[in-house]
Every structure is written in C-alpha cells, then in structure tokens.
Simulated assay, not measured.
Amino acid sequence: MDDETQHEIDDKYTPYVERPETYVVPVLFFMIFVVGVLGNGTLVVIFVRHRTMRNIPNTYILSLAMADLLLILTCVPFTSIIYTFESWPWGITLCKISEIVKDVSTGVSVFTLTALSAERYCAIVNPLRRLQTKPLTVFSALIIWLIAILLSIPDGIFSELQENKTAENESIVFCTPFPDNRTTSEYRKYNVATKALIYYLIPLWIIAMFYISMAKRLQASANEIPGELQGQSVSQMKARKHVARMVLCFVFLFFICFLPYHVFFIWYFFNPNMEEDYDSFWHCVKIIGFCMSFINSCVNPVALYCVSGLFRQYFNMYLFCKPFRRLRRTLPSSMENCETSFNSTFRKPLQHTITETQSIHRNMGILFRQNTQDIPVMGVVKNL
C-alpha cells in the first residue's frame, strides 16, 4: 500500500467517539428494548390469560409477538453496541446466536404475514367455508418456525469473528456471516440476493396478489348484493375488511422497516466500486437500515394499540391499570360466521347471557325484552 492510498484511508476514517451514531444508536435500542418487551410481552399475556382471544388471526399475531420478543431479548442488548465500540466484545458464541436469531425472527415475521394474508383472502373469498381451523393454524405456525430455523442454519455455521487492522495498526474484531477464509465474493452475492428474495421480494409479491384479489372480490360482492340483504352483508364485510386492514398495516410496517436494509446490502455487494463509492450517504443508509430492522420488532403492538379498540383496552388494563370496559357492538346474525380479532372476544359470553335470559323468559311464559338498546342484536336473539 503506497503512502497516497494510506493517506486517503486515514482521511475517510473517523474515530468512534466523533461519530453521532455512537451515542444515538444505544439510546434508540434502549427504547426498542423497553417498548418491545412491554408491547410483545403484554400480547403474550393477553393470549395466555384470555381464551376468547385465541382465534385464527390472533394465533398468527401471537407467533409474531413471540418472534419479536425472542429477537429483543437475545439480540438487542448485544447488537446495540455495534456502532458504539469498534470491536465485538461478546465472543463467537453470541455472534452465531445473534445471526441465527435475526434470521429466525425475520423469517417467522415475513412468513407469518404471508400466512395471515392468505387466511384473510380465504375468509373474504369463501366466507361460508371453514378452510382453516385452529389446529391447522397452530400447525401452520409451527411449520413456519421450523422453516425459519432451517433457513437460519447457514449463517449460524459460517458466522465468525474477523479481525482487521486500522491505520494506527490497532485490531478491530467484528461479527460477520461472511468471513473471508470460508466464503468468496460470489457466495456473498448469492447469500444477499437469496435473502432479499426469500425474506422480502417474493413474500411482498404473494401478499400483493392476495390483497389485489381481495379488493376485486369485495368490489364484485358490493355490486352483486341484493338490496334486501345488503345491510347484513355490508356489516359482515366491514368486520372482515377491518381485520384485513390490520394485517395490511403489519405488512406495510415490515416492508418499510426492512427496505433500507436490503437496499444497502444489495448495493454494497453488487457494486464493484463499493469501497470508492461508499460515502456519508450510504453510511447513513446502512445505519438507518440496521436500526429500522430492529424497530420492526416493536412496532406491531403499537400498531395494534392504534387500530384495535379491543386490544387497546387490554393494553390499558395491563400496562396502565385502567378498568376494562365491555365493548358493545350491534351485529347482524350473519356475523356469527365471521371470526375476527375484534368481535370474537365478546360473541360467546353475550350469546351465553342472552340464551340464559331467553330460557328464563320462556319458563315464566313471558316473552319480552328489556333495554333492547343495550343488547347487541345477535343470531340468538332473533327468535325472541
């Protein structure tokens, strides 16, 4: 290496203490850890303690929460110092575990979102056919975890600690899934391209196809509904579309959070002049992509809190000690066949209460209804 090249390297290198990310990234990761543990942990508690919340869409949401919680507890405390210290201090074991868990969490998230989109498509296109049962949903979630674990094995095997020398001849150790002594530049390209396809582009295309088909089906259904039945069908479709919008919100957040990450890696490993072209802009893209890929692990509970009144009440009850208020919904009888995250919680308790009231009234020989405005119109009530 000649003196001119060495001088250019010295000019490009900025000590860690002079970089803003040295101080910003740990604070951001601390917020990710707190919000992620509280949000995803509360979701797990809700599903464990409240049996009525264990419907088909919520089973997939529980799988998402567990994958995010795994990432936050095992990776965030250790990887938060990557842009704070120049060397990886945790050793080879945590290096391999970190790479495996990141791939498992990403795989479970994207595959679960794809399965959720498929489930919503079936619920809207074939609303009267129970194409997916709860045991089948649990089995699908387990298969998703198994596939994600299998896909993470290569990075777990090849991840190693690599040592580089700085201009001051100081050793810098960092954790990487692409060690020079085992992989070539072609393998790196194939690895990055494969991950972009499996974890990003192909699921995005599949989910887009499902939602385009759903939109066409909903439009066709709106035109075909007879006037007499339109009121019930519109209410039924609104409930299904509500859950579909929730899933779409999760999908949007996932692909926004991982967009800078994949853009940087594809540019970096497929650009033959990456070392010369790497500047402050691409350095910012790299850090933003790194941070946003971890932010994705804590945004789903926040999104649920914003879009679902039912989940919002559970969050308020467990996190802020607010009393739980029963949601009252006026639903047509056809809604009994529409299982969603929002109305399924109160359907069974309300039906049980109304059935008991109906039995008492019949035994007394009196058929009357008190405070009818306070009782949601359900399929059981129509015989009163």
Rank of each mutant, 00 (worst) to 15 (best):
R49L: 15
T52L: 09
T79P: 00
A65S: 15
I81L: 15
V44C: 15
V76F: 06
L71S: 13
S80E: 09
L73P: 02
L71P: 00
R49A: 10
N40I: 08
Y60A: 10
L73Y: 00
V44A: 14
Y60H: 13
R54G: 08
N55F: 02
H50I: 07
R51D: 09
R54V: 03
L43N: 09
V45F: 12
H50Q: 05
M53E: 10
N58R: 10
N40M: 08
T59C: 09
V76W: 03
R49S: 08
M66R: 06
L71D: 05
L43I: 15
M53G: 00
F78W: 05
I46Q: 05
I72T: 01
V45Q: 12
T52G: 08
I72F: 03
L62P: 06
N58W: 14
T42P: 11
N55H: 05
I72K: 03
F47S: 00
L43E: 01
I46K: 03
T79E: 06
L64P: 13
L69I: 03
L69D: 02
T74P: 01
C75A: 10
Y60Q: 06
S80F: 04
T74K: 00
F78D: 01
L64Y: 09
V45N: 07
M53Y: 13
S63W: 04
L69M: 09
T79R: 01
I81Y: 12
V48E: 07
A65C: 10
L71K: 00
I46W: 01
G41E: 11
I72G: 01
L73A: 04
I46C: 15
A65G: 10
A67E: 07
S80H: 07
I72E: 06
F78G: 01
S63C: 13
H50G: 00
T52R: 13
L71G: 06
I46L: 04
C75L: 01
C75M: 02
V44I: 14
R49F: 07
P57A: 08
N58L: 08
S63E: 10
T42W: 02
L69W: 02
L69N: 00
N55A: 04
I46N: 11
S80K: 05
P77Q: 07
A65W: 04
V45H: 07
S63T: 15
M66N: 08
S63N: 14
M66P: 01
R51K: 15
R51A: 12
L62A: 13
L70I: 10
L70Q: 05
A65K: 13
I61S: 09
M66C: 14
R49T: 13
I61F: 15
V45M: 14
I61T: 14
N58F: 11
D68E: 05
N58P: 09
R51G: 13
G41F: 10
T59E: 05
R51H: 11
F47V: 00
L43Q: 09
M66D: 00
L43K: 05
P57Q: 08
T52F: 11
F78I: 12
C75F: 00
T42D: 07
T79D: 05
L71M: 12
I81F: 12
